[in-house]
């Protein structure tokens, strides 16, 4: 048993059962868990599973990611409402977060934490364990510590609820953003400061209006990532200089089948390859590489996919 004193580089399973559940874990391919100190202590004679002790009270609890249909809210469109926790990771990059997601969509929580570069543990039940275990194994296999987020917007986060809502909308609109407590010096990113002349406070009170203003100031032509064909997919980009990685999260997993999304990534590339936790033979189709951008279609997206673009 080890104490959680190092960063959770890859999301982990938070488990609240004792060593009698070892066979269940091992059947799912899980050999490493996080548990409360009391539970962790009961595992000391079970060598097959590595147990890290952590007080759940030390984690910030996050709501279940997914989608909802807000029929009680008047809206000009019938877009589903995407519940993403991504903004938490941008606000607190050193934070440690805990999800409690029963059922098979627990894998989305793990994928979300990974795509946003955050530290998280996911608690689930027997129904969620197989898909979560598969996702954790996949994430461990594609981890690349050299990758750094690719963003277009430098958002100053004042820590307020309003700021959180604005950050959330930017993420949901696939406007690639980084957050900091104070303005950063940048010549390449669009600076966004709530309460500035460009983003008056009264407009920021409506995050939808605010996000649209940011988008118009940035312009679609300068967005490093565009996603067409789905309202429920959020994407993130990361790069190590030679490779750009696209993370694609389907927040509708379990409810919405995403049968095809078209992705556009700015930059010059010559090839693209897709990976997913299902290890499916799904290939990208209708690829296009030109001097400005790469485009490709992913025929099916279950929960999470990673596309590596090479120059």
């Amino acid at each position: 048993m080890t104490l959680l004193s190092v960063a959770l580089l890859v999301p982990s399973l938070f488990w609240d059962k004792g060593p009698q559940s070892a066979p269940e874990l091992l059947r799912s391919g899980v050999t490493s868990i996080v548990a409360s100190p009391e539970i962790a202590a009961t595992w000391k004679n079970q060598p097959a599973v590595r147990v890290t002790a952590a007080d759940p009270a030390s984690f910030e609890k996050l709501p279940t990611p997914g989608i909802s249909f807000r029929s009680d809210v008047a809206s000009a469109t019938r877009e589903p409402w995407v519940d993403s926790d991504g903004w938490h990771y941008l606000r607190r990059p050193d934070g440690r977060f805990l999800y409690d997601v029963p059922g098979p969509t627990a894998d989305l929580a793990a994928a979300e934490a990974f795509a946003f570069g955050g530290q998280a543990a996911i608690k689930t039940d027997g129904a969620g364990l197989p898909s979560l275990a598969k996702m954790l194994k996949f994430l461990a296999g594609i981890q690349d510590e050299q990758l750094r987020p690719v963003v277009n917007i430098a958002f100053v986060d004042d820590g307020s609820t309003r700021s959180a809502e604005c950050l959330n909308l930017l993420i949901r609109r696939n406007l690639l953003v980084q957050a900091s407590k104070s303005p950063v010096s940048t010549s390449t990113l669009l600076p966004v400061v709530l309460g500035s002349a460009d983003y008056p406070t009264k407009d920021a009170s409506n995050p939808v209006v605010f996000a649209q203003q940011v988008r118009e100031h940035l312009t679609d032509g300068k967005r490093s990532l565009r996603i067409y064909g789905s309202d429920v997919v959020i994407g993130r980009l990361a790069s190590n200089g030679g490779k750009t990685r696209v993370y694609l999260l389907n927040y509708g997993t379990g409810k919405y089948s995403v049968d095809g999304i078209r992705v556009r990534v700015l930059g010059r590339y010559s090839k693209a390859q897709v990976f997913d936790p299902e290890g499916s033979s799904s290939k990208l189709i209708d690829t296009l590489f030109d001097s400005e951008a790469a485009e490709f279609t992913l025929p099916k997206l279950k929960t999470f996919a990673v596309v590596d673009l090479d120059m």
């Binding site: 064909g229 089948s257 049968d259 095809g260 078209r262 209708d286 296009l288 485009e295 279609t297 025929p299």
Partner: peptide, 12 residues
Amino acid sequence: HSRGSILGYDPF
């Protein structure tokens, strides 16, 4: 065949 699928449309 499934509503919202883009696969039946020409990306170009």
